[in-house]
């Protein structure tokens, strides 16, 4: 292609894709092949498209995505390990007109922070919770998470997760879908263009739910950790599809509004 031809193509009216204006120029620390980068991009795009940048507060976790605040250009609070939903609860209640979202991994959300996420969802806090589940602790070097599959080898289950020793992998998203305070609970992924588009729709829907004060929206993104799993990114995608998707099937678990409080009054009448 000649320079002239290139110039013909590179016109503003021909742009079909560009980096979100809400993604900062910092170089991401995530490993190549990690799902966090794409998920960050989708959140940035949704906030930009909804035009709510200056009304949005994000809560980042402890774990690989602790530095999420370096990449998405909104106000952020960095929480203690597992406590993001407690922070978000206070922020949203004190600032009910703002948009509040949490971003947590599976160790942060399903292990040390199990109480905070369950109670925030049970109260029906009007927030968006993004849950990135790669079935392992990434930041600390690949240890077993509550979501690690049986038989899966990690730094703390070097011979594979054993139920007698380590218990069962936890389907916390299924648990959360049972809670009356949630309005939208879905499980998505970001390993193909189609999956990316679906996850973006889910995130947008979750923010719109918050606008309409419907209750807690919870989005699990089943993800890869090729460093922790010790396989290359392409194989990691395949491994996720072959194994994680079987135990953590994709799709909506709940899409409604939080339970009607009136329906709970019958028990003491």
């Amino acid at each position: 292609m000649t320079d002239q031809e290139l110039k013909e193509i590179m016109k503003p009216e021909n742009i079909v894709y560009k980096k979100s204006g809400l993604l900062r120029d910092n170089i991401m620390h995530y490993c190549p092949g990690c799902s966090h980068g794409v998920t960050h991009k989708l959140i940035a795009e949704v906030i930009e498209e909804l035009g709510i940048k200056e009304q949005t507060i994000g809560i980042s976790p402890v774990g690989c995505s602790v530095f999420a605040y370096n990449y998405i250009d909104v106000d952020w609070q960095e929480a203690a390990h597992g406590r993001a939903p407690a922070l978000a609860t206070a922020v949203k209640r004190l600032l009910p007109d703002k948009y509040v979202f949490t971003y947590q991994g599976d160790g942060d959300l399903a292990s040390i922070g199990a109480a905070e996420i369950l109670h925030a969802c049970n109260r029906g806090e009007n927030i968006v919770c993004i849950f990135v589940n790669n079935a392992i602790y990434g930041m600390t070097g690949g240890q077993m998470a509550p979501t690690t599959l049986v038989g899966m080898k990690t730094a703390t289950t070097p011979y594979g997760r054993n139920v007698d020793r380590n218990g069962y992998p936890m389907k916390i998203t299924e648990l959360i879908a049972q809670l009356p305070g949630t309005c939208y609970v879905t499980r998505q992924s970001v390993e193909t263009p189609a999956a990316v588009r679906k996850t973006k729709q889910a995130i947008k829907k979750a923010f719109l739910n918050q606008k309409e004060k419907k209750g807690t929206s919870f989005i699990e993104v089943v993800s890869t950790c090729n460093s922790g799993w010790k396989i290359d990114p392409i194989k990691a995608n395949k491994w996720m599809q072959d194994h994680l998707f079987k135990f953590y099937p994709l799709g909506d678990l709940k899409d409604s509004v939080k339970d009607d409080p009136e329906s709970y009054k019958q028990y003491i009448e």
């Binding site: 609860t89 109480a115 905070e116």
Partner: peptide
Amino acid sequence: VASINMVYG
């Protein structure tokens, strides 16, 4: 634990 983290938020 949640109370003090709500205070943090």
